[in-house]
Computed example of a mutant assay.
Amino acid sequence: MAKIRDRTEDFKDVVRQTALSLGYNESKMAAILSSFIIHKPLQRTSFTKAALKTLESIRTLEQFIMQHRKDYVDVHRTTEQERDSIEHEVTVFIKACKDQIDILKNSISGEEAKSRGWLGIRDDHSNADTIAHKHGVVLILSERLHSVTAQFDQLRAIRFQDAINRRIPRKKMKRVSSSNATEIPKSINSELREPDEPQPEPLRVQQQLLDDETRALQVELSSLLDAVQETETQMVEMSALNHLMSTHILQQAQQIELLYEQVRIHFVVCIFGYLYI
């Protein structure tokens, strides 16, 4: 049986001689060999750069919410204007992130339209996989933005609930103060009257009528005040619920649209594979 001979060194010598004959010097050969060992980093596409930028914006938004969480929830730390300013900045952040995600979606749609043939069917499996991967990236970014906005929605719900709780005790205090105010004039009038002084009958009847009218007006004003405060509380609750509802509807619409795109891509790929089979 013949012995196995290692011809690696002979191969290297042949490669070196061939390279020298083609005009390569030792430095060029060393650079080529090093490029085989240490690969250059791949150039990132514009989509990848935009996706990473969007992810960084979402992380910045999350850090901003966590940093100003106590200032937004605690009424003793900041004023209403400062909390409104925080909410405005968060809203601007969310809108900017959503616009970036929409730009990514539009770029995918444009690339998808270019990759279709004259029958509307893609002619490249690798391009279809790339587009599906990009749709997945957009879906991940949308879910990440949804989780961050859900955190802020919880803080907003706490703020609105605290505002409602502050209005309810104030209503009770006003009721107590109004009842005390009705009792004070009666006590003053009773003290000013002499204990044994007889009152004429017409004056006593007139005083009784005035007292009845005063009590009726107080009851009516108290009921009107309660109705106004109850309406104000309901308006605050409706505002909070409308905002939460609009946020959830927008997020559900985005998820439905992404799912529709993924199903459509999968369907077209299946048709393309069936035609080629």
Rank of each mutant, 00 (worst) to 15 (best):
Q207K: 07
I277V: 08
K3Y: 13
D10N: 09
E87I: 00
T45D: 00
T214P: 00
D123Q: 15
S190C: 09
S46G: 15
K114L: 13
I103S: 04
R5D: 06
R166D: 13
T18E: 09
K134R: 10
V137Y: 04
T247R: 10
H243S: 15
R215H: 06
Q234N: 08
S46L: 14
E87T: 08
I4W: 15
E257C: 05
T233P: 00
D84N: 14
R77K: 10
L224C: 03
V236I: 08
R156G: 01
D6P: 04
D102S: 08
A163R: 09
K98V: 07
E87V: 01
I271K: 04
A50G: 01
D74K: 15
S178F: 15
S57P: 02
S177D: 11
P198E: 12
D6V: 07
L224F: 09
L203P: 02
V73W: 03
F93P: 00
F47R: 01
S239D: 12
S223N: 14
F152R: 03
L244P: 00
P202N: 07
T48P: 00
T8Q: 10
H243V: 10
I140N: 15
L55H: 14
P202C: 00
V73M: 03
W118K: 07
Y276L: 14
A19T: 01
E143N: 12
R156M: 02
Q262D: 06
T18V: 04
L209E: 12
Y24L: 12
E213T: 10
Y274A: 13
F160N: 02
S147G: 06
L241I: 04
R175V: 08
I140A: 15
G23C: 03
S126P: 00
Q154C: 08
E56N: 11
V219F: 13
F11L: 15
Q63E: 05
Q206E: 07
R166N: 04
L244W: 09
I38M: 13
S246I: 03
Y274L: 11
L244V: 03
F93Y: 07
D162P: 00
L224Q: 09
A31P: 01
F160V: 00
G120D: 02
S187Q: 13
V73E: 03
D10T: 05
Q262Y: 05
A113N: 11
S46R: 10
A216H: 05
A50S: 05
R144Y: 06
K53F: 01
E220G: 12
L224A: 14
E112K: 12
S178N: 14
Y72V: 01
D6Y: 12
N127S: 08
E56T: 14
D153W: 00
Q254D: 06
L104A: 02
D123R: 07
I158L: 10
G23D: 05
L104Y: 03
A96N: 10
E62I: 00
G23K: 01
F64N: 08
D211V: 04
F93I: 01
E230W: 10
A132D: 13
P169S: 02
D99N: 13
R144T: 09
M245S: 13
R44V: 04
Q17R: 05
E89T: 05
E26K: 11
E82F: 03
A96M: 03
D123P: 01
R167N: 11
I86V: 11
E237I: 09
R69E: 10
K70D: 08
E194V: 10
V138I: 12
S179N: 11
F93H: 12
E62F: 04
F160E: 00
